[in-house]
Design a protein around this nucleic acid. Structure first.
Lengths: 358, 358
DNA sequence: TGTAATGGATAAATCGATTTTTCGCTGTTG
DNA sequence: CAACAGCGAAAAATCGATTTATCCATTACA
């Protein structure tokens, strides 16, 4: 109620200083918690701060330091639950440490990814959490390296020779999926994915294949991948089914693939798990309310975010040493979309009231 | 290849100035496009910029101006497709204008919302796009008002006496849903929602009710709302069904409600649209691949984002005048989850191979 | 020829903090 | 009593840009 200035200009440190009858330097020290200030002066500073409603301008405050209290986050997209949660977590963790998070979406484009990174470099961010579009060997990581930026790579990475990496343990999770599917008696399994994300997808694929073959050397594993977008994947899948292939289970290595698989199933009038079983990498809220509920690999978002921030701040504070590559364990949620083969009519629809096509 | 400094310190405007043999002021003018500079000097500046790889430090650049080239965005959450797309759009639009977007999630908390806003005020952001947790009358909007901040309110708002507002035309969309449901012959409809978001939810509810009653005065419309979270809504819904209520259609006023409805349906072994029809406000990618596909109201995210940014920048550039309240038209996607009542067995499951409970 | 107007560029002030240097004062010591 | 150490606080430099004030040459005009 003792406000004297209009809503236009905010009080600066000098306003506080003159109100408290001290210098700006003293105000700065008091607020920074320096103890070599006479208690009565400190009190007058606190009073003035209170009276004026003074708050430090983070922009001005950051001017004089080389590493600013800003963390950049670059995600391939914001539309999925995974990256949405990731940004939420990262933002909270940055805030806890008094940092501001600036997040941007590369929209699955490596070109844009690098542009964003360059802009963050302009801001002299203290560090970057980068979830690369492709993998750890893209132009963005190279840019960071070339410019001596500190950062952590997450999600679509395995390990790097310059940056700490944190990602879900895709291989282990895929192996578990394999155990479960083989355990249910599946002997012909189709794996679908996008090959672009190289390292990660390969890890998932190999983790799955190795475990499946170890448990049942006679298992048949088909693989369909597409290079760029999901549409080619969709048509490949359609062709695959059209030429009579009838796997008893599908394991999708990514969320969009799960959606494609589901829509192709419904196009053919197949139901899970009687006609075919389905497991997808990446969980989503809707998967537990659909009928049937979709089995999925749940990525440990909080752990990845938390570990990434820990590693990042360690580097920001000057830690040296070889980069670490962390793999956080996933959880496999078996739901109704997975069953044993042959327990239901394995044919093209007809026994349902739903129309096979929309 | 002509880099001379290590990856540590970046060149400043003074480095460029000395390389070009001019003053820093001249460099600044050249880069700002001022024409009163001798062409040859301008050229030397450009050459030096090129040679050193100089880029303006946005933080330092913003120091001297009252309104900084930063836009704040506050969303209730990042996990849903709607807000994910919204942030992506807003970020792109801000970037187009040379602004940096700082986004934060209020995590559905008005307290946090205000804290974030205060922090953005500390940054002296030029403007804020606020999607309030509750409605336009919350503490965050009051804070903006009290501090003379410029901003736009979106999504869970209708109109405000201080800020421009942009939201989906919920009422019109709901009226269209009513037309479609009544048109299909539904005469007992349940509407579910969260009452917290007052204005918006009320608009949706009233838009629906008015149109439904206009078309069929004898229609029975039940309403279940919950104040705070979705769990009370779930149990209310469960009670409602448990005491024998059998509406022929459910209209959910929000995405989470759609999920709750779906999970309660499957709990009881009901299938859409034979046992019950379902329409939800807010579309999601998965809704078109499930079986049945879920009918939904699609919000015009791009238009809302674009209009919000237009209005915001108009204000940032000093436009005065009474606030405008925009309503962007939605699209209603009728999908298989909606049918005519009585066209299928209306009872508790038993005719399916899926177990009713997970 | 003297003075005013003008073009083009530099020096200096500014933004709001932090950090380093300097300074004044008190109390101790040789 | 002079020199010195120590403490607090003020003054000044700094961060990297932008903007204003200033200045030096020309050129124009009386």
């Amino acid at each position: 109620m003792a406000q004297q200035e209009g809503p236009q200009r905010r009080p600066s440190i000098h306003d506080v200083a003159s109100h408290a009858g001290v210098s700006a330097a003293t105000v700065s020290k008091v607020l920074a918690g320096v103890t070599t200030v006479r208690p009565e002066n400190a009190q007058r500073v606190f009073d003035a701060v209170e009276l004026l409603g003074y708050r430090v301008d983070p922009l001005a405050s950051d001017m004089r330091r080389a590493k600013r209290r800003i963390i950049g986050a670059i995600m391939p997209e914001f539309e999925s639950e995974f990256f949405g949660q990731m940004v939420t977590e990262l933002e909270g963790l940055a805030e806890q440490r008094g940092f501001t998070l600036v997040a941007a979406s590369s929209r699955e484009s490596e070109t844009r990814e690098k542009e964003i990174l360059a802009r963050m470099h302009d801001w002299r961010v203290a560090g970057v959490v980068l979830a690369p579009v492709r993998n750890e060997h893209g132009p963005a990581a190279a840019f960071m390296k070339a410019n001596g930026m500190t950062g952590v790579l997450i999600d679509r990475v395995l390990s790097d020779d310059a940056f700490d990496t944190v990602s879900a343990d895709s291989a282990a999770a895929s192996a578990e999926v394999a155990r479960m599917l083989i355990g249910k008696g599946h002997s012909h399994i189709l794996v679908i994915g996008l090959a672009e994300q190289a390292a990660t997808v390969r890890a998932r694929l190999e983790g799955f294949r190795a475990q499946a073959l170890a448990l049942d050397p006679s298992v048949r594993i088909d693989v369909i991948t597409s290079e760029v977008s999901v549409e080619p994947l969709r048509s490949s899948l359609r062709d695959y089914f059209a030429r009579g292939e009838r796997p008893t289970a599908v394991y999708s290595l990514l969320l969009k693939g799960t959606l494609v698989a589901l829509s192709e199933f419904r196009r053919r009038g197949w139901h899970c798990p009687n006609d075919i079983s389905l497991v997808g990498f990446d969980d989503a809220e809707w998967m537990q309310v659909t009928w049937p509920a979709i089995a999925a690999v749940v990525q440990p978002v909080r752990q990845i975010a938390s570990e990434a921030m820990n590693l990042l701040f360690r580097r920001v504070e000057g830690a040296v040493g070889p980069p670490t590559a962390r793999l956080e364990p996933c959880q496999v949620l078996m739901r109704e979309s997975v069953g044993s083969p042959g327990s239901g009519p394995h044919s093209g629809g007809g026994d349902r009231q739903m129309p096979p096509l929309s």
